[in-house]
């Protein structure tokens, strides 16, 4: 057997049309501008050393493990290119983007000048990346309601 049951991006089969739903869809329904759902990003866990194929981002989350981010459509290709020790974690992690250092400081005890890094966001384990004023946060999807609520609440406190 393979591990295809972990694959989120699938070709339709048997006449069924499975509907993908983001774990953050409900939590971010009333989100203010600047907060975006990134849950559909492709996310792969890779053990050992990683060469970065084109079009992907590699975040080292532990000495022997990396999180590889890519477009949803590229997951299958990237998985093939990265070899054997890869697990598709696209469904395991929810992702969101927030804007503003102040908001981020209310969510996490992280050195915002030393990102990407792994650490707690809203008290749950997360990986955080920074692009200027925007922060991307990836965390276990079972906390999506909680993290969504904390982010919206923190944003409301700064509004």
């Amino acid at each position: 057997m393979s591990r295809d049951f972990l694959a989120v991006e699938l070709a339709p089969a048997d006449g069924f049309e499975p509907r993908w739903r983001s774990p953050l869809e409900r939590a971010l329904r009333d989100a203010p501008p600047g907060i975006r759902d990134l849950s559909r990003t492709g996310k792969l866990h890779v053990h050992g050393d990683v060469g970065a194929p084109p079009g992907v981002e590699v975040v080292r989350v532990a000495p022997d493990r990396a999180l590889v981010l890519c477009a949803a459509a590229d997951v299958e290709r990237v998985r093939g290119e990265l070899g054997e020790r890869v697990v598709d974690m696209s469904a395991a992690l929810a992702g969101l983007e927030v804007r503003g250092e102040r908001l981020m400081r209310r969510l996490a005890d992280l050195d915002l000048d030393a990102l990407p890094a792994a650490g707690a966001v809203a008290h749950v384990p997360a990986t955080v990346l920074r692009d200027g004023d925007a922060f991307r946060i990836f965390f276990p999807q079972e906390y999506a309601d909680h993290v969504g609520a904390v982010v919206l609440d923190a944003a409301a406190g700064l509004a």
Partner: peptide
């Protein structure tokens, strides 16, 4: 129903049964 699953034929509750394990974004579907 079109969703890739790992099916386990086990029965904690004691009747004929199957555990379906599959990507969580398709859970509601």
């Amino acid at each position: 129903a079109g969703v890739p699953c790992l099916l386990l034929r086990i029965g904690f509750v004691g009747e004929l049964g199957y555990e379906l394990h599959f990507p969580s974004p398709y859970a509601e579907y």
